[in-house]
Nucleic acid binder design. Structure first.
Lengths: 258, 258
DNA sequence: GCAAAAGTGTTTTAGTTACACCCATGG
DNA sequence: CCATGGGTGTAACTAAAACACTTTTGC
């Protein structure tokens, strides 16, 4: 709803006050590629253009709460029931942009958030946005409103860096997943190909990362894979993988690149 | 000047607008320890308490510009003449805090910045602050106003992480420095002891990090050390050290800890 | 000469890469 | 029984940690 709000330009009321928005870089992995959630704007400015979901922060709410609210309003995405911050839904602050030269209406501050989530069912449009949809990252086809191209690039770069030394790649997976699924996340986010056998050893051998459930999954061809979940009590922000899962550049010319 | 500004509490004017401040975590290395710059507040709230330098963002200025202005006003610290962002002065955005439950006057957003700088001459007080001074990080003696303890901790953690894979440790050194000075920075920031010989090899052998000046420095005892500068054209934010200078924990019981 | 710090060489150890090989399932 | 993917073993390679040793200064 919020994108209707302030009558810009200029500083409303007191000096030192600014309109503040939140924008969300929501990433997921679908079909082997990294995808970002965008909405089509129904209002000026940039009416009809794609943009990151977001909107003005309301009085009395935290920034994180505002990010979740705008995401839910504009795309229908909500945190899964048991999400205690550990599982398949990770929201963290990215950085703050503005207030100058980013909104034609005047100085606006935007606090960007980064969401890593599994490929949920297709989101529903609502609020100030029509047709929320996933777009593939890095194919050059997206040109977003405001400075959202840059915010998206920053979010993607953050995700690429973070899965290297934190267990956050699991945030792209459902609660229980196979090692191959997890490897697919790394390959999609980094745009590289990883050796399945070495990856398996590294991922399962890293303390504080994966915990076997004992059950098997996968109905495809080949031997069924064991199901894992994130190790219990893992704070994905604080835990550090030792040694890190380094990006290994393989001589695969067909691998998708950034 | 700015900390006088808005008549809080409540939302001034339009919904979606908030008073916005910048706060600066300014770190340096002096006497073998990591130190942070704090000021004593002259005004309520938290009058007389130590706090990070900072204040309200003014209309028409960028966040970074506001951070530099408040730093100069309250502490006298300014970027050195030739600082193109490469050398001994690195300012980057840390994260944004608020707007709830952090200022007794009401909801205020604070965008924190992190400054890494060499041990400049002692700063001069001014503006809304009396007696700017350096305090040692991690000795538990500092209890700052607002949520500045947490902001300081976040800044220190960012600095510790960043010098591992970026050339930013050089931001703590003068334009030309010895390998031992650089090692002293790592030891102070990480609170560990590093093997001087292995560190020398790693630092000088890392491509895109150090460049020898050909001249010698240091008048102390022992063999004079070669002077180095940062490799030319280095963007400290973008450059990645490969391999990273990992924190090596040595069994030195006398090493200072965080 | 002696202490102290700079800088180099070498051994040991650990982690990564590449790949051979076996396992378990569907068709 | 064959294709397909899951998972283990292992040798070659590479980087890091530990430390002996030489260099160059001040006193």
């Amino acid at each position: 709803m919020a994108r209707t709000a302030p009558a810009l330009p200029a500083v409303p009321g007191t000096a030192g006050s600014f309109p503040v928005t939140v924008d969300v870089v929501a990433l997921t992995v679908r079909g082997g590629t990294l995808q970002a959630l965008v909405v089509d704007r129904l209002l000026e400015p940039f009416r009809g253009r794609a943009a990151l979901p977001g909107g003005f922060v309301l009085p009395g709410e935290t920034l994180e709460r505002a990010a979740e609210r705008e995401l839910a309003e504009e795309t229908g995405l909500t945190a899964p029931a048991g999400a205690t911050g550990v599982g398949p839904w990770h929201l963290e602050q990215l950085r703050t942009y503005g207030p100058l030269d980013r909104d034609p209406r005047g100085p606006v501050l935007s606090v960007a958030y980064l969401l890593l989530a599994p490929a949920f069912g297709l989101p529903a449009a609502g609020g100030d946005a029509a047709e929320a949809r996933w777009v593939t990252v890095g194919d050059g086809a997206v040109h977003l409103a405001f400075d959202h191209d840059r915010i998206l690039a920053d979010g993607v770069e953050r995700a690429r860096a973070k899965i290297e030394y934190s267990p956050l790649a699991a945030a792209f997976c459902p609660a229980e997943f196979t090692v191959a699924e997890l490897r697919g996340v790394y390959e999609a986010v980094w745009g590289t190909r990883l050796d399945a056998r070495n990856f398996h050893r590294k991922a399962t051998g890293t303390p504080g990362f994966l915990e076997p459930t004992g059950r098997l999954g996968g109905g495809g061809p080949g031997r069924p894979a064991e199901l894992y979940r994130l190790a219990p009590g893992v704070d994905p922000t604080a835990t550090v993988l030792h040694p890190p899962l380094l990006r290994q550049v393989s001589p695969d010319p067909g691998a998708p690149s950034a």
